[in-house]
Each structure stands twice: as structure tokens, then as C-alpha cells.
Amino acid sequence: METFFATVSAGTLSTLEGFINDWVVYLAIGIFAIELLKYLVRGKMSWRLLGDSGTNLLTQAAYLTISYTVFYSLYGAVFYGAHEFALFEIETTWVSVIVCIILADLTYYWGHRFTHRVGMAWATHEVHHSSPNFNMSVAYRFGPLDDAWAILFDVWLVIIGFDPLVAFFCSLFVLQYQTFLHTEIVKKLPWPIEFVMNTPSHHRVHHGSNPEYLDRNYGGMFIVWDRLFGTFAEERSPVVYGLTRQIGTVNPVIVFLHGHYDLLRNVVKTPGLGNKLRRLVMPPGWEPPLPSRATHPAPSD
């Protein structure tokens, strides 16, 4: 019990983070191998599927490049700046790390919901959702600005009073947990787990383009946030993965940038400055209202 309340050093945390990072990758490779074998056995293997998986990894490489050159230092600057305004003085112990992970999942829930419901944020997050397949490689399919939006929500952990390094570690941990959700080989887990935790079943729903599955199951590690805030859906009918309008390509450049390209094109073609700006904040699928009838000449009869 003592150790739970003892101080955890920054060195211990970053060592642990590196260790977790390595094992997530090893396990994901193992699971992906099983998935490929299953595709083969079921006759579902195709060049297209392999191309899509390769593209997923390429988007990850591009995303990491942007993260390392821009966003990690931005995280540092924003977090250490925000720490000046900390509400509580929180020491770094295993207890506070666990509390921080739970709260990091709550901020993740809202950040994730934001990226689905605000047009300009969806432009980057829709990359993750644009694969028509669902396997370990999709976990690595990221858009260019995914980190930018996450900062807005994760910074609250630091404002509450968690050490910037702890907040960063916990936010990363919430993402790493989700790697294992991207698989079809796990059907349903025992109900207490399905009730509290986010599982492959819940996350398949999140990746579904079926009308009843749209904008559901935003949680990272825990599904209780969706149950609490009314965004939960159970996996019942088979999931159709991808966007409501499939992008129909595995070209890595198009996959990585299609969200922002579409957003830009839509903004340009939307008439009126007000509607252009609204396009940036309204949910995907939003269309500007038709001009009101009063402005048309009255039909002559």
C-alpha cells in the first residue's frame, strides 16, 4: 500500500511509458498477423486490403513526423504555461496517476466527441474513420492535426493541477489502450467488462457508418462516459465500416489529406461569409439553409 502513496519520479514515468509503447507495438503486430491469417483462410485477402493497411502505417509515419516536429513541443509549452494556473497542488503518486488516467479518459471523451461534431476538427479525425476495414492497422491511421485538437481538452488536466508530464503520460496511455480495440477477432467480453470498459465490440460500433451507429461510443478506455452522456449504442446488426460516403482509395496522400481538402472545397463553395464560417463549426453533413421563401418572387397563379 505504501508504494501507492510514494512519490513517482519523472524518470520512472518515462521509462514506464517507453516500456508500454514497445509492448503495444509487439502485441499489435502479433494480433495483426492473426488477422491477416484469418483474412486468408476466409478468402477475404486482397491487394486492396494490404494496400489499405500499408496506407494506415504511412499515415502514422506522417502523423508522428508532425507530432515530433510541432505538437510535442506545443504540448510542452501549453502544459507548462497552463500549470501556472493549477487549481490544486497534486503530488505525483501512483494514486494521482490513476486518478489522472480516469480524468484523461473523460477529457478524451469530450475531445473525441468534439472532433466528430465540429466540421474543422472532423476534417482530421475522419481520416481515422475512412478505412472500410477494421483491423490492428486501422489503429495507426491518423490525420495530420489529430494532436492539435487533443491539446485543447488535455490541457484541463494540467489546469486541475496534475503535473504536465503526468498529464501527457496519461493522455498517451488512453490512446495506447485503444490500439487493441481495432479488431474483429474479439467478439464480446464478459458483461461487467463490456459495461464499464471500452471494448472491440463498442469500438466497432464507433467505426460503423450504419445510421444507428453514427456518433456513438466516443469513450477511450471507459464506455461509462457514453452511458452517462447518452451517446452509447450496443453492437447488434453487423457493422459497415467507414464513412457514410466511402473515399474509395488507398492512395496514402489522398487518405491523409482528404478531410482537409473536402473541408476547404466545401467552405469555398458555400455561399456567404456567415455560412462559410458556420461550415467550420457545424457537424459533418450540415448544409447551409436554403434562402427563405420570402426572398423568392411569389409564384404567379
Partner: peptide
């Protein structure tokens, strides 16, 4: 479930502050 965004925001803020307070009460 809570469907109002405003109520959700208040609940979220309460959970964040409550968690922070709990974590701050743990002393080495």
C-alpha cells in the same frame, strides 16, 4: 442518460474538480 449538453458540461466539470481534489489530498 444525460442528454442536455449544459448538464453534461456541469457534471464533467464536477468530476474533474472532484478528481483533482481527491488526487491533491494524497500526500507523500
Amino acid at each position: 442518460p444525460i442528454t442536455s449538453l449544459a448538464v453534461s458540461a456541469v457534471v464533467t466539470a464536477a468530476l474533474m474538480v472532484g478528481g483533482g481534489w481527491l488526487a491533491s489530498s494524497v500526500r507523500t
